[in-house]
């Protein structure tokens, strides 16, 4: 009986005494850590490209909720799609992101960014917006808002907005059009695969 009485106190004490790691409940700290790691892992051009590609994909898996993003982007066809089709999309989507964005890290070893504000949703404390500002070497600082969700104790990125435009929404509308033209999710996947194969998404 006494033990039961003590339990809440023990827990309370523990929670006070043991500082929780910052990243565990601060979406901004999570983003900062993630960003620093990304630059550390991906900006070093002496590392072979294939290895950086692999790291990029690992970081995508770890930092982004690709399942939820894909579900939003594909929208309706996602429901009726086979699991294998969904996985095929996620795979090619990661390849697209890698081809498009990994090269942007090159030469960004001293890249500067800072988080500047967090807004947790009022009706859902697992959702938050985090403001991230990038200092570009040759221009105005660029402000972005990152959509973060806590799921099972871990943070995941769901969307990125710049100047009010959402990446997820933009891709969703674009892919919807491609799916109409190419005959559904399978057609979109094939189209993306072809483009990745040709290196069409590579900057420059």
């Amino acid at each position: 009986m006494l033990r039961h009485l003590f339990l809440p106190f023990t827990l309370l004490l523990l929670s006070v005494a043991v500082p929780r790691t910052e990243a565990a409940d601060d979406p901004a700290a999570f983003l900062e850590e993630f960003g620093r790691e990304a630059i550390a892992q991906l900006a070093d051009e002496s590392v072979p490209v294939s290895q950086r590609q692999q790291r990029f994909q690992e970081m995508l898996d770890r930092g982004f909720d690709l399942e939820a993003i894909s579900r939003f982007i594909i929208a309706r066809p996602w429901r009726s799609a086979e699991e294998s089709e969904r996985q095929a999309f996620i795979t090619v989507f990661k390849d697209y992101l890698t081809q498009r964005f990994l090269p942007l890290f090159e030469g960004y070893a001293n890249g500067e960014f800072r988080t500047g504000g967090v807004r947790v949703d009022q009706d859902n404390e697992d959702l938050a917006w985090v403001r991230v500002t990038f200092q570009s070497p040759r221009g105005q600082p660029i402000q972005t808002d990152w959509r973060i969700r806590r799921n099972g104790g871990e943070f995941r990125i769901l969307d990125i907005r710049a100047e009010g435009a959402s990446m997820a929404l933009t891709l969703r509308e674009e892919y919807a059009s491609v799916m109409r033209q190419e005959g559904g999710l399978a057609g979109l996947v094939t189209r993306l695969e072809e483009q990745v194969e040709r290196g069409a998404f590579r900057p420059n």
Partner: peptide
């Protein structure tokens, strides 16, 4: 003007990317 910011920033580092003219055969 800001349209490109999205692309530039999306996933972070548009800062160092120069102008691009995709050489699309499509």
């Amino acid at each position: 003007r800001s349209i490109g910011l999205l692309a530039a920033v999306v996933l972070a580092l548009g800062a160092c990317a120069g102008p691009q003219a995709p050489d699309s055969a499509e």
